[in-house]
Amino acid sequence: MALCEAEKTFVLHGVEENFRVDGREREDYRPIELETNIVSHAFGSARLRLANTDVLVAVKIEVDVPYPERPKEGKLEFFVDCSANATPDFEGRGGEDLAIEISNSLSAAYKSPEVFDLTKLCILKGHKCWKIFVDILLLECGGNLYDAVSIAVKAALWDTRIPLVKSVTVDGNNVDMEVSDELHDCQKLDVTAAPIMVTVCKIGEQCIVDPNVAEELCSVGAVVIAVSKDKFSTVLQIGSGSLHPQTLLECLQMGEKVAQRLSEALTETLSEINPNKNQDVGFLK
């Protein structure tokens, strides 16, 4: 997508007036659709649609050996796949840089034990642990990928069920474990502190959240802010611009405020999802 100067000015003036091109205010999000538990082979999954951005996240779990330096912890890894379906730019290795950037920012955001407790994934100290693979598939890019991905990941982790381990037996160097046969005997992950990322974009003199593709092109710089509870778990600058320290602080404040609101809305939505009710609608079903 390319914008001419006149179009850029139009977007800029809209932001200045607090009335953006699509009628939103500066701190408003576009409508979000969220579905969970849609991939039957996965232990947990979620699909999120934020206007034109479409993300599918699936969680797979395997048994692995913990890192020798952290024997009491499980593992959590993120993989992003930029499908060429999303935009022709991703064809071949085109989306690789973006994929690495998103997966690295997610691993950084989930790194602190205050955010996500990996010790819960330990089965037997130093020998066996659960390894969680979070696979993120970008199906369509309509701007604001970080936010969409972080919400979808949180929802997918919320949906994840870890099989219950009934017993672990150690025989010399052999470790055997018995997993419960009962399909519904499983644990849920604690995702209350899982971070929500908010991209704050600077356009002209003002900051906005949830930029669409046109607004992303007009911005001079953007900050991705991952907020967990009331603290920042990761902050990183993206785009090629630089920011004044004061602007950075304003962005942080705005990001925190919006992330709190978003997190509340997500918790509310997730609590409304009832597995017993027959809600089979939409995508992949």
Binding site: S112, V115, F232, S233, T234, V235, L236, P245
Partner: peptide
């Protein structure tokens, strides 16, 4: 130019802590 050209944070920090850190 008094510009921050790059900023990266990881961990778990409050706003107060982060803003004094930036300064």
């Amino acid at each position: 130019h008094e510009q921050i050209s790059q900023f990266y944070q990881s961990g778990y920090l409050s706003y107060a802590c982060l803003s004094s850190g930036i300064e």
